[in-house]
Structures are given as structure tokens and as C-alpha cells.
């Protein structure tokens, strides 16, 4: 789904607040495809727009996470119930160069006429921080 189709009507207040937070941010469409990342995300995790925009958001997650992520995303679309939204999650996050950074992921979802959109803020954590997964 093109970014324009989702965000044409303007960013929602909640996502706007996350964008103002100044940290790395990833926006994804209802299918979990990355539609926008900010400059902080590019700087810290090293992804270029052409490498990550249009790709599944699972690309920044460890391989072992992707199947459960797809299942969870599909279940959320069907039931609109989630156990991971709006909770800080300490997860490994893959950088463009293959490194893995433990980061706090804070995911919010908002329902638009076109479907759910997802915004994730990422905060890199000190090396050695235990992960939730």
C-alpha cells in the first residue's frame, strides 16, 4: 500500500506526537510494510530508504521473530486485540550492516479508513541489556 494512500489525510495526533519525540521512528501500513522512516532511524540503524521502505517491517527483526510476527499481525487484523501494543519491548533490532542492537520498541496502532497503521519508536539500549526475546 502506498504511503500516500495511508497518510494522505495527514498524520494522526498520536503518531504526530511520536514523530515529535525525536527518536528513531518507523511507520508501517496495515500489511506491516514500512512506509516511512525518519532521519534518526536512518542514522542509528543505517538503513537507506531504498533498502527499507516498501519492505516488511520484519526485516529489522531477527529471523527467528518473523513467523510469530506475521502470525501476530494477521491475528491483530482479525481480532483487533494485541498484547504487545503500547508496551515497551526490549528486542534485538537488525541494522543494515547486519549488526544487532538491543532497542526498546514502543508500538502504537491507529485505525484509519484504509486500515490499521503502525508506528514504532525505537530507543537503542546499552550493550548487554537483556532482551524480552
Amino acid at each position: 500500500m502506498a504511503e500516500d494512500a495511508i497518510f494522505r489525510a495527514g498524520t494522526t495526533p498520536c503518531i504526530a506526537a511520536l514523530e515529535c519525540s525525536g527518536g528513531p521512528l518507523v511507520l508501517a501500513d496495515p500489511l506491516g510494510t514500512v512506509v516511512r522512516v525518519n532521519q534518526e532511524f536512518r542514522q542509528i540503524y543505517g538503513w537507506l530508504d531504498q533498502e527499507i521502505v516498501g519492505e516488511p517491517i520484519g526485516k529489522i527483526l531477527p529471523e527467528s521473530f518473523r513467523m510469530a510476527h506475521q502470525f501476530g499481525l494477521s491475528r491483530f487484523q482479525a481480532t483487533e486485540q494485541s498484547t504487545i501494543l503500547a508496551h515497551p519491548l526490549h528486542l534485538n533490532t537488525l541494522c543494515a550492516d547486519g549488526r544487532s542492537l538491543v532497542s526498546e520498541h514502543f508500538i502504537v496502532a491507529e485505525k484509519r479508513a484504509e486500515g490499521w497503521i503502525f508506528a514504532t519508536t525505537l530507543t537503542p539500549l546499552p550493550e548487554g541489556t537483556p532482551v524480552d526475546a
Binding site: M1, L31, Q70, F71, G72, L73, S74, R75, Q77, A78, T79
Partner: peptide
């Protein structure tokens, strides 16, 4: 393609549940 992806998503959700 979109409807196929949506159908796949529904199937995954059904399977997970």
C-alpha cells in the same frame, strides 16, 4: 495482489487462532 495478500492474512489469522 492486494486481495490475495488480505486472503493470506485472513488464513494466517484463522490458523493462529
Amino acid at each position: 495482489e492486494s486481495s490475495l495478500v488480505l486472503e493470506l492474512g485472513r488464513s494466517l489469522a484463522r490458523l493462529e487462532l
